[in-house]
């Protein structure tokens, strides 16, 4: 529990019980981990305009929940295919959406599921809220050397969603320790200066340092390079600019409709809507993402069997 919590906890002795009910609801619906982030801590980190109060003025609690990544089989498929279904955040959003109804129905406190998209005032790469920050402060993930992707010691790699509510809930603390880098990564870094995620990133946008105790010293991430690989909305204006600059009809036709560009049009019109999601190569080679005790459905089922 966060140190700032006792004052409100004393005034609302049922808060812990309410929180338990909410956590159970989310887990029943498929969340692997659920926590409550300290609102004050969020405000200290999130820039103005991107704080929970900027969405829900009366917010008193931020619930963060994580769902598992893909199946174990998914890690084995070609990257171009993985990129389509690698993200499972949709499931997390559905649970968060249901959770906000659950709180309103059950506890009569206004709630909202945190919109997971971009801030239209901030341009395409600026989100309304940092779901990552909520999850980190709620203690269900820690920043990794792979571009700050959150990892969990038990569940590995998760997708997160948040619920803002006017119900006060006792906040959790961040994780006591960071599972990243894994011991094998420390070993590899000692020998080669790179961890698996750094070595196998297709655009080499990751680097970092690790100390003698095997802890992160510095994480360096060229997000622009990563985004280039996985988001292509900027290819559209570039394609159009090429078409304008084309010297003749055939060149213009090629600028607009060569096989790559035709694919962009397809995805923007009748395709799934996604251009490419993430490339996930850093996670594919990450021992925590792929081999944490409850990292995927097969491991979780096996663990459940053992428990039974």
């Amino acid at each position: 529990m966060n140190e700032r919590a006792p004052r409100e906890a004393a005034s609302d002795p049922d808060a812990a019980e309410l929180k338990t009910q909410i956590v159970e609801y989310c887990k029943r619906k498929g969340a692997l981990a659920v926590g409550v982030a300290d609102l004050d801590a969020i405000d200290l980190v999130a820039p103005p305009g991107h704080r929970p109060r900027d969405i829900l003025p009366g917010v008193r609690s931020v619930i963060s929940l994580g769902v598992g990544g893909q199946t174990q089989g998914a890690w084995t498929v070609p990257t171009k295919a993985f990129a389509y279904f690698g993200s499972t955040e949709g499931r997390a959003y559905t649970i968060a959406y249901g959770c906000s109804f659950f709180i309103e129905n059950r506890f009569r406190a206004r709630s909202v599921y945190c919109p997971p998209d971009m801030d239209p005032e901030g341009g395409a790469r600026i989100p309304l809220q940092s779901l990552k920050l909520h999850a980190e402060l709620a203690g269900i993930g820690a920043r990794s050397l792979a571009g700050d992707i959150l990892l969990h010691p038990e569940f590995g790699y998760m997708y997160y969603a948040s619920v803002f509510t006017e119900l006060w809930l006792p906040p959790d603390r961040p994780l006591d320790s960071n599972p990243c880098p894994a011991p094998s990564c420390v070993e590899m870094h000692r020998k080669t200066g790179q961890t698996p995620c750094m070595k196998f990133c297709p655009v080499q946008c990751l680097s970092g340092d690790i100390n003698e105790r095997g802890e992160q010293v510095e994480m360096r991430y060229d997000m622009a390079k990563c985004a280039e690989l996985t988001q292509q909305y900027e290819a559209v204006p570039a394609m159009l600019a090429d078409a304008f600059a084309a010297p003749d009809g055939p060149a213009r036709e090629r600028a607009l409709s060569d096989p790559d560009n035709a694919l962009l049009w397809y995805k923007m019109s009748v395709g799934s809507g996604g251009l490419l999601a993430q490339c996930f190569e850093c996670m594919r080679v990450c021992p925590i993402a792929t081999r944490a005790p409850l990292a995927d459905p097969i491991r979780r089922a096996t663990a459940a069997d053992k428990k039974a």
């Binding site: 084995t76 070609p78 990257t79 297709p202 622009a224 900027e234 570039a238 394609m239 490419l276 490339c279």
Partner: peptide, 22 residues
């Protein structure tokens, strides 16, 4: 961001997966 965007990088993904690493 638009000017610095390199469009053809995602082709790198086509040869990855199924045991192939970058």
């Amino acid at each position: 961001e638009v000017r610095r965007f390199r469009r053809r990088n995602y082709h790198r993904l086509y040869e990855l997966g199924r045991g192939n690493r970058f």
